[in-house]
Amino acid sequence: MNIFIRLLKSIDRKFIFIITFFAVVIPMFYPLYLPIIPEDSVRSIFKKIDAIPEGSKILMSFDYDPASKPECHPMAIANLRHAFKKNLKIVIIQLWPFGGAMATEAIDELKKEFKEIYNRDIIYGDDYCILGYKVGGAILIQQSGKDFNGTFMEDIDGKKASEISLTKDVKTIKDFELVLSYSAGDPGIKQWVMIVDAQYKVPVAGGVTAVTAPEITPYLNSGQLLGLMAGLRGAADYETLVNKKYPPFKKYVNSGTSGMDPQNIVHLMIIIFIIIANIIYWHDKKMGLVR
């Protein structure tokens, strides 16, 4: 026992790094394909988007950057798939400087999918548009409740929002059926809930990184937030719901779903690490080595 404990204590942290790396890599080659049962908070977003009449406008706010792309991007793609399939008109804004690039990337991917599956073109200005980045965060959200086009002014190519067919009739944020925010921090979903839901009564939902999810749950519990996708699991849940309704999307990249395999193993690995560490601790405590 003592030799075993001594061996465990001598483990270098680089060894842990290597184990972590392989715990991520190996399940990618040998996936378990465990079934994913979507959580209620994700189902409610799916139901809401499903119930919005065709041709209605929804607002998507891309409030993340490449650092949190692996978490937020799959959610945004899953939502966009559903919304485009439902023929909803999507206005995209960005409260983070990299949001526009993220949105462009997501839609470029979807254009290919829709062309291949449904022979449909997703057209800029008609199906979606991306408005340019402005600094101001919560102030922008506040102003968009009074004058939407005056707030965001131009799209990423410098075309006036009042001249784009999708946004020219939008007066305020109330003209949207739903606001979806993919957020990795501030400004993000919290500000959308605090202003748009509270003052303009437009339902707000969206996705957050798993780190921020616990601090957003009070808003979900109070009903201020319609639904919430938390981290990669949230994306996997939404992908599951979309793929169930529209099976052709199954064959495309579903990062959330495929990410669950390594996630399973690494979570188990970390739990084992903590247990081993505590065995060492209890052993040392018994031996009087620590207090």
């Binding site: 842990i16 972590t20 790396f21 690490f273 903590i274 560490a277 505590n278 601790y281």
Partner: peptide
């Protein structure tokens, strides 16, 4: 990700 794994092993004690 690597650091949180290492922290799990080295820091979390009940």
């Amino acid at each position: 990700a690597f650091f949180i794994a290492s922290a799990a092993f080295r820091a979390f004690r009940a």
